[in-house]
Structures are given as structure tokens and as C-alpha cells.
Write a protein that binds this DNA or RNA. Structure first.
Lengths: 189, 189
DNA sequence: GTCTATATTTGGATAGAC
DNA sequence: GTCTATCCAAATATAGAC
């Protein structure tokens, strides 16, 4: 089953290279080279470039599922949310260089006239929003959906500024602010 | 002076089309067509595509300068900041379709290995941050720089989610939240 | 399943007539 | 200053040998 192995390598390479270079500036050859697969052979596994983008998106969705599964082991929903923020902040150097993998992909795909892939990326973002909403609801807070949007928007905003200004410290400071915000929400005053 | 006119039309067209389609998916022909200028003639005014991107960026910077100049007419810095948020929210339909002009441009340009244009876009974002910082400082608040980052990150975050989910209502709700946040900052408790 | 060679298209950029 | 025709490079995708 060497084929399965190559498919996985191509998927992993696509996720990494597309994040770093963006969709439009990445060539099939770039991905093939990173995966150490000859260019022509790529088409045996993925018929078009868009299928590689789709595979990369699924890879990011998988990482997100892994992360939330890990967080779900924590008993307290508030701790889960705080740990999520900490996980984001721990990625600050990558964010400073390349931004949030899903966020930058969404921004790029949303520019397309063809609305197939950008509906997909919207769905992945919704998975994160839904998970966060569940935590806020478990805490008994009002408007858990709005709170989830505020949290994720906070993350996307700090990622973009961190990236645009190439300054990981923004991520640290804004992460601290989000943690404090989560505390005030639940301090019941 | 027909030349000046064409240059301006090309600049305006570049700003609009690059915002809608993104840099990489926009061809010189797209911009030329929108500006109603023959393709070959474009190169008389702009030697490369990157010069057109630079021109579009300057156009956005000009719009920002116009907006802040207008806001500066308001006597109270808090009113200025609130009016800024309201100006953002009023653009919610455009944001839902194409995102924030400067933010999406920054995300795209930051993917480049060549760091010329992405330093430029960072500078434009800094202009906005500096203006906001001035307002927070005028209000006598501590850490005005951090507050400016939080405000602009809030804008970029809500723009990205609004765009990715194609939902202008997110912009309305998050805008309201930013206004309430500005109020709590200054309510002096 | 793998890989090389190549067909095809697109788009940035230029030459040169007017 | 204006515009057409075209060059050329890059990149997606395919053909077909192994």
C-alpha cells in the first residue's frame, strides 16, 4: 500500500505549503517537491489542484477535531476555553509568519467566483464556532452563539494583526485579554 | 491632460477589482477592462503589476485618511471612536462579500517571499492603529496602544468571520459589542 | 502504480506602428 | 500618448512508456 502513503504525504505537504505560500502562489510542483513525489504522479491521486486544496482543508479540519477532543477531556468548560486560547497563543510564531491556517485560507477562497471551496472553509470555521458555543452554553451564559463569534473573531483579528505586523507579542497580549474576558464573563457580577 | 485621467481611472479600478478578486486572481486585463483602457496602454502608466497593487494600496490609504480627517471634526475622542465603528458596520454588505480591503490585502501580500509590498500594507494598518491610539490617549486611558490593537483586531476579526460566513449580521452584532466595550472603558468604574 | 515528456492555456510584459 | 500584435515564461493537465 505505497499509494496510501503517498496520498498522505501529498495531503500533509499541501496543508503546509498552501498555508505558507497561499493557494494562488503555490504550484503543484511545490507540493510535489515537498512531498517528494514526481509532479506527473500527483495527478494519479488528485485530479485537479482544487482537490489538493480540499485535502489540505480536511487536514486542518482534522487538526481542529484533534485539538477539541483533547480539550474535551478537561472537566470544566471554562478551562477548555482558556486552554483553547493558550493553544492559539502557543502558535504565535507561526501566526506571525503565516497567519491562521484556516483564516487565511478562508480570506483567499472567498475571493473566488466559484463558491464550492469557500463554502467548505465556512463549514470548518462553523465547526469551531459550534464547539465554542457548546462550552459557553454549558457555562449557562446567555447568547452562547454570540459569545462564540466574539471569541473566534478575537482569534482571527489578533492572528491577522500579528501576521501583518510580524509581531508575535500581539498574540500574547491579546490572548491575555481574551483570558481576562472569559474570567469576567463567569465571575457572576 | 488625458493621461492623468487614465492613471486615476486605472488606480480606482485596481483598488476595486483587487479587493473583489484578490491580487493573484486579478489580471492586468481585468483592471484595464474595468478602467476602460486598452491592455497594452496600461504599461505606459504602470511598469509592472506590482505597481498597480501599490497604487491600489495608496488609494485605500487615502480613503482611510479621508475618514479619520472627517472623524477628527468631532470634539470628543470617544465619539470619534464610536463613529469609526459605525463607519465599519455601515460597510457590512461589502465586508460580507469581499472582506476588509486592507485586511484581505494584508493576508494575501504576507504570503509573499518578497517583503516589499507587505511592509507597505503593514504601514497602512499602523496608520489606523496610531490614529486609534491617539484617541485612547486623549481619553486618558492606560495602555492606549494595546487598546488600539484590541479595537482594530476586533474589526479585522469580525470582517473575516462576516466574509467567511457571508453574514453581514455578524458585523452588526460585533459592532454593537465594540461600542459597549468603548463605553465600559470610559464609564470610570 | 510510477514517471517523463509534452501539450495547452494563461497572463505578464514588450515591440513597434500610429 | 495610444493601441495592436506578439513574445515568452509559468503552470495546469495529459499522453503514454514502463
Amino acid at each position: 500500500m505505497r499509494g496510501v502513503d503517498k496520498r498522505r504525504r501529498l495531503t500533509a505537504a499541501a496543508a503546509q505549503v498552501l498555508h505558507r505560500q497561499g493557494v494562488e502562489r503555490t504550484t503543484i510542483a511545490d507540493i510535489a517537491k515537498t512531498a517528494d513525489v514526481p509532479v506527473g504522479n500527483v495527478y494519479y491521486y488528485f485530479k485537479t489542484k482544487d482537490e489538493l486544496v480540499q485535502a489540505a482543508l480536511s487536514e486542518h479540519e482534522g487538526s481542529l477535531a484533534e485539538l477539541t477532543a483533547e480539550l474535551d477531556k478537561l472537566p470544566d468548560p471554562l478551562d477548555r476555553l482558556k486552554a483553547l486560547v493558550e493553544a492559539w497563543v502557543s502558535q504565535r510564531d507561526t501566526a506571525a509568519r503565516y497567519g491562521c491556517p484556516t483564516g487565511t485560507l478562508a480570506a483567499e477562497l472567498d475571493k473566488r467566483a466559484d463558491g464550492t471551496l469557500d463554502r467548505e472553509v465556512g463549514r470548518v470555521i462553523r465547526v469551531l464556532l459550534d464547539w465554542a458555543e457548546d462550552q459557553f452554553r454549558a457555562l449557562g451564559l446567555p447568547d452562547p452563539g454570540d459569545l462564540a463569534v466574539t471569541l473566534v473573531a478575537g482569534y482571527q483579528g489578533m492572528s491577522l494583526l500579528t501576521n501583518a505586523l510580524r509581531d508575535p507579542d500581539i498574540m500574547t497580549r491579546e490572548g491575555d485579554r481574551l483570558i481576562r474576558w472569559l474570567d469576567t464573563l463567569t465571575s457572576g457580577t
